[in-house]
Computed example of a mutant assay.
Amino acid sequence: MGFEKAGAERKLQLQELECLRLEAYENSRLYKEKVRAIHDKNIKRRKFRPGDLVLLYNSRLRLMPGKLRSRWKGPNRVEKVEPYGVFHLRHPSSNKILKVNGHRLKLYHGEKMKDNKELEIFHLEDPSSADD
């Protein structure tokens, strides 16, 4: 009799343990869904069109960047946009095309580049003083 009662008690404990484990799995799934939703909401979608000027992030400077060295290279011109955030870039001084992920790009807000690539050079001189 004691064995039958102990066996029945053990079966009830195992059922309860299984219910707790299933509840933990469900709670974990709900937590992951909420965290994924928050993460996806905070991701910035990069929308560049062909012809836009962008700066390219240089991830190799992470180890020893130097005090005043910029991590952004460019500006580069977007040549082609592919699905899933792949962009084809061309630097104005070369004909090579780079394929990069859109997360490594940001919009260049400087002045528009001229297609003829002419540079205007200004020579700076000290102002004349009243003593001269």
Rank of each mutant, 00 (worst) to 15 (best):
K41C: 06
N76V: 03
E79G: 00
H39D: 10
K47I: 10
S59E: 09
V81P: 01
R62E: 15
W72T: 04
V78C: 10
L63Y: 06
F48L: 07
G66C: 05
K41I: 01
L56E: 03
P50H: 03
G51Q: 07
R36S: 08
R77E: 13
V54N: 02
K80L: 08
V81F: 00
K80N: 01
V78T: 07
L63G: 11
N42Q: 11
I38V: 09
V86M: 03
R49E: 10
R45V: 11
K44I: 15
R60Q: 12
H39T: 08
Y84M: 07
P75N: 00
Y84H: 10
S70W: 04
R49F: 14
F87R: 01
V86I: 14
F87S: 03
L53W: 09
L53I: 03
H88I: 06
Y57F: 15
N76R: 05
K73S: 12
P83R: 08
N58S: 12
H39L: 11
A37H: 07
N76L: 15
G74D: 02
S70I: 00
L53Y: 12
H39E: 14
R62T: 11
K47R: 14
E79T: 04
N42I: 00
R46N: 13
E79M: 15
P50L: 04
S70F: 06
R36I: 00
K41S: 14
A37V: 07
K67A: 10
M64H: 08
L55E: 11
V78M: 07
H39F: 06
F48I: 07
I38M: 13
G85K: 01
R69D: 06
K80A: 01
E82M: 13
A37Y: 05
R45E: 14
E82P: 00
K44R: 14
E82N: 10
N58H: 05
V86Q: 05
W72E: 02
A37W: 04
E82D: 08
E82Y: 13
P75D: 03
G74V: 06
Y57D: 01
L55H: 01
K80V: 08
R62I: 11
D52L: 09
M64I: 10
P50I: 02
F48S: 09
L68A: 05
I38N: 11
I43M: 10
G51A: 07
D52G: 06
L56R: 07
F87M: 14
R71W: 00
R62N: 10
L55R: 04
K47W: 08
F87K: 03
D40H: 06
R46C: 12
V81A: 06
P65D: 05
L53R: 02
N58I: 05
R77N: 02
D40I: 00
L68G: 09
K73E: 11
L63K: 11
M64N: 14
L55Y: 05
F48D: 09
A37T: 07
P83C: 01
S70M: 04
